[in-house]
Simulated assay, not measured.
Amino acid sequence: MSQDSQTSEKAGRKARLRAAVALVVFVTMIALVLHVDPAESYLWIKALHIVAVISWMAGLFYLPRLFIYHTDAQPGSDKSETFKIMEQRLIKVIMNPAMMISWVLGLYLAWSVYGFSGGWLHAKIGLVVLMTLTHIYFSRSARRFLLDENTRGARHWRLMNEVPTVLMILIVILVVVKPFA
């Protein structure tokens, strides 16, 4: 298998290094915000939480699209091997860190601002749990693709591509409208 400059091991190491640097910068920003003025940190933590959620959602939208295209690739082909690299990097470099930061900052906000109270908040957390389970399902599916053991067709992945969208819509409505306040 020939690897181009984007799928080589060297490119993978560079991607992991860039992701690690970004994660350190992100965590440092959070620490500075909390240290400099904890009383004024709410808006900064909220902004960083939104950035993390957007990054996580981007991965949740893109990964099933990769699966759709991957199902058409012959196992072992250059095309299939490229999709494997893309899927693994997306999960490890973007989705997993973004999900973890989303959870940590989201729970911090739920505790510090709302004291974990409010029906809308409980419903939102429940939907975020479903989003996390979707993430886990996608991650396990990527592992099956990696092992050339995928048994799902493109139609399944087209349907699964809608799950994060529906969950996101419901979560945004709960956060903005707070119908069960």
Rank of each mutant, 00 (worst) to 15 (best):
M1Q: 07
S2C: 09
S2T: 14
D4N: 11
S5I: 15
Q6D: 14
T7D: 03
K10W: 15
R13Q: 11
R13I: 14
K14R: 12
K14D: 08
A15W: 04
V24F: 14
F26D: 06
F26Q: 04
F26M: 13
F26W: 12
V27Y: 10
M29S: 11
A31K: 13
A31Y: 06
V33N: 02
V33L: 07
V36P: 00
V36H: 07
A39W: 05
E40L: 11
E40S: 15
S41A: 15
Y42D: 04
L43I: 09
W44N: 04
I45S: 03
K46N: 08
K46W: 01
A47F: 05
H49Q: 06
I50E: 08
I50N: 07
A52F: 05
I54H: 11
W56N: 02
M57V: 09
G59C: 08
L60P: 08
L60G: 11
F61A: 10
F67H: 10
F67E: 01
T71S: 12
D72M: 10
D72I: 12
P75S: 09
G76R: 09
G76H: 06
G76P: 05
D78P: 09
K79F: 02
S80Y: 07
E81C: 12
T82W: 00
T82H: 10
F83W: 12
I85D: 01
I85Q: 06
M86D: 00
E87T: 10
L90H: 04
L90D: 00
L90G: 03
I94Y: 12
I94G: 03
N96L: 07
P97H: 04
P97M: 08
P97Y: 00
P97A: 05
M99L: 11
M100C: 13
M100V: 14
S102F: 07
W103L: 06
Y108G: 00
S112Y: 05
G115S: 08
S117Y: 01
G119M: 12
G119D: 07
L121F: 08
H122R: 10
A123L: 14
G126I: 01
G126A: 02
L127I: 08
L127P: 01
V128M: 04
V128P: 01
V129N: 02
T132E: 02
T132I: 05
T132C: 07
T132V: 09
L133A: 15
H135Q: 11
I136S: 07
Y137L: 07
F138R: 03
S139T: 05
R140H: 09
A142V: 08
A142I: 09
L147R: 15
E149G: 15
E149N: 13
A154L: 02
A154H: 10
R155E: 06
R155H: 09
W157D: 13
W157F: 13
L159W: 14
N161T: 10
V163E: 03
T165R: 07
M168L: 05
M168T: 13
M168Q: 10
I169Q: 04
I169H: 02
I169P: 02
L170M: 13
I171V: 12
I173Q: 03
L174M: 10
V176G: 12
F180D: 07
A181M: 10
A181N: 11
